[in-house]
Structure formats: structure tokens, C-alpha cells
Nucleic acid binder design. Sequence first.
DNA 1: AACGTACCCAACCGCTTTTGC
DNA 2: GGCAAAAGCGGTTGGGTACGT
Length: 244
Amino acid sequence: MGRAPCCDKDKVKRGPWSPDEDAKLKNYLAIHGTVGNWIALPKKAGLKRCGKSCRLRWLNYLRPDIKHGGFTEEEDTIICTLYAQMGSRWSAIASKLPGRTDNDVKNYWNTKLKKNFMAGKVGLKSLTENDNTIPSTPSLTQSCNTFDAGYGFNNNEKNIGFDQIHDVGVSEIGASNNNIDMNPMVSMSQDNSSIGVNNNCDQAGDDESLEPLMDFGFGVGSDFASSCCFPEWVDFSYADIKTN
DNA sequence: AACGTACCCAACCGCTTTTGC
DNA sequence: GGCAAAAGCGGTTGGGTACGT
């Protein structure tokens, strides 16, 4: 038994919205506002639509503050930066882009931006002390500074390439995980789609000792690994952490 | 011109989270 | 605190269009 459907699919219209339906929805919301019950809205507004469909149509298309044009380079950079930091949390990413919806950002990423990102055509934004663009997050890794502590990376260096962190030993991982406090190794998975932490308590190089730490959710090609860089402030605390 | 393929994006689906009783 | 309903969210689908052969 699944969850009960939110509406009777036989009695509601589906598919693309007509200009007439858009007008009805807009008019209703102009008078009554968006605060209220979306499930009851279609009936009140004279629409044969599911409430969820009405909500989505309003949020993704009809809202007056929606931007309908193409994305700017600045927006590209912000999306890539935030994606690297928090993964596919599209609503959170969209909230940093005025006028953009989560659906917009998601579609744009999946169809265009991901490819450009992989190809290294889109850079990542560097974080400064006063940069409010990026939400503050608990840090799993201290990123560049951590690397810097033991391995002499220049603190002013903005970018660390995947090829640089491939199999590089680090002196400390920011998270307090007792299993990885003995000189862990950070390694890329074979397809470069994830980073694992190798607990040095086990024999180095033993695949079974590789603790998956981070999964990017996309198969990063070797081109990407060698061409793409992450700035020092990027942490991956929001990335999916797989357990065995 | 006809066909196949790739791309774009609106909309849907269903799971998770939040809210109200 | 428990439950149900509503809202929020991310993944996926499908129709339309552009482009290449």
C-alpha cells in the first residue's frame, strides 16, 4: 500500500498549461495571495488541476519575480561553486540566485552546465571573509589550510586540482572520526567520482581499507580530474557520505 | 525534404519534512 | 507524542524543437 494520491488523477487535467489556466491561477493568487491551501486552490480558482501542479506552475513559471532569460557567467560560477559544496540541493542553490527556481537550476545543470564544468570551462568562486553568497557550513575538511599544514601548499593558492589531492597524504582530517586519525590517505576512486579516506592502520594500498568519504554523484572523467580545480574554501560536508 | 538524434525545459512522481490537531 | 495532511524537494519523464546527415 502506497501513500494515497493527493488528487484523483482521472478528474484533473494534466500536461501543459493553457494561457487561460495561467490567467485563472494568476488572478486567483493576485486576489487571495499564495498563503493558504494549495490542495483546495484549484477548486476555488475554477481550475481542473491538482493542487501540486498549481503550486509548481506558480513557483516555476508564473511568479512575477522569475527570470526567464539565459544564465549569466556569474550565475554559472555560483551554481558550480555551490554544487561542489553542497551537492544537488537545488532549492538551496536557487535561493542564492534571485529570480531562479530550483527546477531552472537543476535543468540547466543537467543539460549544459555539468558538461562545461567537467570540461573545466566554468571556474569556481573564491570565498572571501565578507562573501555572503555562500552559506556558512560546518566544515568536514579544513581544505587548503589542512593540506597546507603538513605538505607545504601555498595558503594563497586558490585552487587545488583533483590530481593534486589524488593519493596525497594529509596530516589531519577536520571531522573527528576516530577511525581516520592515523595518517589517513585521501584517494580518488577509479572513475574519479568519489574520494575515499584510507585508514593507515590497514595496509597501505589495500583496496578494502579505503573508506568511502565522498561521492560526487557523477562519474568524473579523467579530463575533469586533471583540469578542474576547487578553491580552498570548498568543503564537501554536504556531499553524500556512503557507508559500506 | 525526410529522417534520426540530441537537446531543452515544463511537468509529473513519489519520497521526505514540516505543520497542525 | 502520534498521526494525518500539506508543503517542499529532487529525480525522472516526455513533448517540442534544433541540428546534423
